[in-house]
Simulated assay, not measured.
Amino acid sequence: MRRTHAEADARLVVARPRLPLAETILPYLQRIDEARWYSNFGPLLTELEDRLSQRFPEGTRVITVANGTQALALTLMAMELPAGGLVAMPAWTFVATAHAVLQAGLVPWFVDVDEQTWSLDPAALAARLSQAPGPVVGAIPVSPFGRPLDLAAWRAFRETTGVPVLVDAAAGFDTADDARLPLVVSLHATKVAGAGEGGFLATDDADLAAKVRALSTFGFRGSRDSLLPATNAKLSEYTAAVGLASLDGWPADRLRFLRAAQMLRIGLTGLPQVEFQPGWGADWITSVCCVTLPQDAADAVEASLAAQGVDTRRWWGLGCHASPAFADLPREPLDATDRLGRRVIGLPFSIDLTSAEIGRIAAALRHALSGV
């Protein structure tokens, strides 16, 4: 795709989300018009959940929810963990993980991640449980920017310790295919397969799925009687229409994302100081590009890139624990998280990233790194 001179001189934004085009959504909207069913688990939502469940082994239940944060919170509530108990979670995550834990009446316990994987190590966490500042009633490993987790190791952790596990795979749509641990995926507009807003729980636990469904719809379970304190977190038929169109386009979109990622990796080949997440753009894909820079170089590099018209973002800031909202929550020493917070930045990336834009990113990074 060729760009005009004005476009070439414009700022290069860090993210350029893209949802399905109106023409691909229209057939689903026409179905809504014909059915006159707009919410409350209509035919489009039912189809969306069925198609999502087909990405997992037979017997998997998929429950859609208004957004990924609500999916996490309602699943934690449905797990019926002791109120006020600690939930071990990485400090290296988006703030939504901690907000969901608090919303569920539980307490986040921030634990450090492995610096190579950017995620919690189940064996290391198991060894720390006896030193926790209170009863640990759950654990939430987070897929870092979509990188797959070792779910077999987390199942072993659950079996060995007896601690329930909920997987936060908000950005992990591409590789999410195992529901033997309850797993939450986001359908936000910024994700590789989005519906604007939304998220879903995938689980092989039929009872857990039924509880989350009830919690998302006023506590109803087959009647108009509200059986438990709950909320309204349903997806509308209109959101389901966008989600279905996203699924229609996913096979082709995945290839486009992979191609853009591989082109960017090739474009930055001459910059060994810039390290991609292992497997990104080859084994798995997500909608953002996070790279690791030399220690203590990120601030200067970001300032230089900004001056050159190339935007960046610290998607997780210095870590979830650094937000004022969580200042008083318990935490382990977070040395690896602190180092990652000072080294990891998000570069411009999108499904339609062009060769010219990759050239700009590479040139700007080369100039920025020459000064550090």
Rank of each mutant, 00 (worst) to 15 (best):
A327S: 09
C290P: 15
R331F: 07
S323V: 12
A282D: 15
Q277N: 15
A322K: 13
C290A: 13
L340F: 09
P330G: 02
I351E: 06
A364W: 02
A363I: 13
T312G: 04
R331N: 10
T312K: 11
T337P: 05
E302T: 04
L340T: 03
Q308H: 10
A297G: 07
H321V: 15
L334W: 03
R343C: 03
V291R: 00
W284S: 03
A282E: 15
C289V: 11
A282I: 13
S323G: 13
R360H: 07
T337M: 03
P324V: 05
D338W: 13
T312F: 00
G371Y: 09
P330D: 05
W284E: 10
D283G: 13
T312E: 10
P348L: 04
R313G: 04
C320V: 11
G359R: 07
P294S: 04
A364G: 14
E332H: 14
D296T: 08
A362E: 13
L365M: 10
H367F: 09
T312Y: 08
E357Y: 07
S304D: 10
R342D: 08
Q295E: 11
G281C: 01
G359E: 11
P348Y: 06
Q277R: 14
S304G: 10
R314S: 08
R366G: 09
P278W: 05
F326V: 06
T312D: 11
I345A: 02
W316Q: 09
R313N: 11
S287P: 02
D328Q: 10
W316R: 09
R331G: 06
S350E: 04
V288W: 04
I361V: 15
A322Q: 07
V301P: 10
H321Q: 15
A303Q: 15
P330I: 13
H367Y: 15
A322L: 12
V310T: 01
T354Q: 05
C289I: 01
G317S: 01
